[in-house]
Amino acid sequence: MKKYLTDEPSCPVDYAFRRIGGKYKGRILWYLHVKTIMRYGELRKTLSDITPKMLTQTLRELEDDNLVIRKVYHEVPPKVEYSLTEVGQQLIPFIDYLRIWGNEQIEKQKAKQTV
Rank of each mutant, 00 (worst) to 15 (best):
Ser10Asp: 12
Leu98Asn: 05
Lys45Ser: 11
Thr56Asp: 07
Ile50Ala: 01
Arg18Gln: 15
Glu42Thr: 05
Lys53Leu: 14
Gln113Asp: 05
Val80Asp: 01
Glu42His: 07
Ile95Lys: 01
Lys45Gly: 09
Met54Trp: 04
Leu84Thr: 00
Ile100Leu: 08
Val76Cys: 07
Tyr24Met: 03
Asp64Cys: 11
Thr46Gln: 07
Gln57Ile: 08
Pro52Lys: 05
Leu5Arg: 09
Thr85Pro: 06
Gln90Arg: 14
His74Glu: 14
Lys3Trp: 08
Tyr4Ser: 07
Gly22Ile: 03
Asn66Lys: 15
Ile69Thr: 08
Leu67Thr: 00
Asp96Ser: 10
Thr51Asn: 02
Ile106Leu: 12
Tyr82His: 14
Tyr15Asp: 15
Gly41Asp: 13
Pro9Asn: 06
Asp96Met: 10
Ser83Met: 13
Asp96Ile: 06
Asp14Gln: 13
Asp49Tyr: 04
Ile69His: 12
His33Asn: 09
Val13Arg: 13
Asp14Trp: 07
Leu47Tyr: 00
Thr51Arg: 02
Gln113Ser: 08
Ile28Leu: 02
Asp7Lys: 13
Leu67Lys: 00
Asp96Tyr: 07
Trp101His: 11
Arg99Phe: 05
Gln113Tyr: 04
Leu32Ile: 02
Thr6Met: 07
Leu67Glu: 00
Ile100Phe: 05
Pro12Thr: 03
Gln109Asp: 15
Tyr15Gly: 10
Val68Pro: 00
Pro9Ser: 04
Leu59Ile: 03
Leu91Ile: 06
Trp30Thr: 03
Tyr97Phe: 10
Asp7Ser: 10
Thr36Trp: 05
Glu42Leu: 07
Met54Cys: 05
Ile92Trp: 02
Tyr97Trp: 11
Val68Asn: 02
Ser10Thr: 11
Lys112Cys: 08
Tyr15Arg: 15
Asp65Lys: 05
Lys2Ser: 10
Val13Met: 10
Thr58Leu: 00
Met1Trp: 06
Glu42Ser: 09
Lys45Asp: 15
Val76Ala: 11
Leu5Lys: 10
Trp101Lys: 12
Ser83Glu: 13
